[in-house]
Structures are given as structure tokens and as C-alpha cells.
Lab assay of single mutants.
Amino acid sequence: MDETGKELVLALYDYQEKSPREVTMKKGDILTLLNSTNKDWWKVEVKITVNGKTYERQGAVPAAYVKKL
């Protein structure tokens, strides 16, 4: 869990989004888990830093590609 009490997951593999509802992640990324009720796809929040600014993006990733921490 992070400092706000939200559950975290670890990306076990790289994943490139294939639709606007998904998010890209790299192996080793730590993501915030938002919903894991679907056994195949979990909704997560990814933090992306671009030019020193951090953005948050929500989307789905394959459940088999992440592990709860």
C-alpha cells in the first residue's frame, strides 16, 4: 500500500497499450491498483513524468502482467 492506503501492484512485464482504455507500463513499474474485480484486466493508475511534470493516467492492464505488493 502507498501512503494514502491504496493498494500497489508491480509490473512483471512490459505492456504497450492497444486502445485508449489501456495504459502502457514497463517491467518494474509500481502502479496504483484502482479495481481488480475483473479477473483478466485490472484498472490501474500510472504516474508519467514528462519534462519534469508528473501526470496521472488511469487505464486497464492485463492482470497476469502485474502482481499485488
Rank of each mutant, 00 (worst) to 15 (best):
N35R: 06
E45F: 05
V50I: 14
G59V: 06
I48A: 06
A63S: 12
T4S: 13
D14Y: 04
K26M: 08
Q58H: 08
P62E: 04
K53I: 14
K53P: 02
Q16C: 13
N35E: 15
T49L: 10
I30F: 04
T37I: 09
E22H: 05
G28D: 04
L10S: 03
L8W: 13
K53Q: 13
V61T: 01
L12M: 08
K26I: 06
K47Y: 10
G5Y: 13
E3H: 14
A63R: 08
Q16Y: 13
S19Q: 06
E22A: 05
L10F: 08
L31E: 01
W41Q: 01
N38C: 10
A64W: 09
L34E: 02
L34K: 05
E45A: 15
E7F: 11
G52E: 06
Y65S: 10
K67G: 06
V23T: 04
E45Q: 12
T37Y: 09
L33E: 00
V23P: 01
M25Y: 01
E3P: 13
G5T: 13
E56R: 15
V44G: 00
P62R: 04
K43I: 15
R21N: 15
V46N: 03
T49I: 13
T49H: 11
S19H: 09
A64M: 10
T32Q: 08
M25K: 01
L31P: 00
A63I: 03
K67H: 09
Q16H: 13
I30N: 00
N38K: 06
L10W: 05
K26H: 10
L34S: 02
E7S: 11
V66Y: 03
K67C: 15
V9C: 13
A60S: 14
V66Q: 01
Q16W: 11
L69P: 00
K27E: 05
L33V: 06
G52V: 02
D2P: 13
M1F: 13
K39C: 12
S19C: 10
Q16E: 13
V50S: 09
V44N: 00
A60K: 13
G59E: 01
V9K: 02
E7I: 14
M1A: 13
I30Y: 05
L8P: 03
M25W: 02
K68C: 10
K43S: 12
A63L: 01
L31Y: 08
K47L: 12
L12C: 12
V50Q: 09
Y15P: 02
M1T: 13
Y13F: 12
K39A: 13
D14M: 04
K53F: 12
D14Q: 01
P20D: 13
V66P: 04
L34Y: 02
G52Q: 05
Q58D: 04
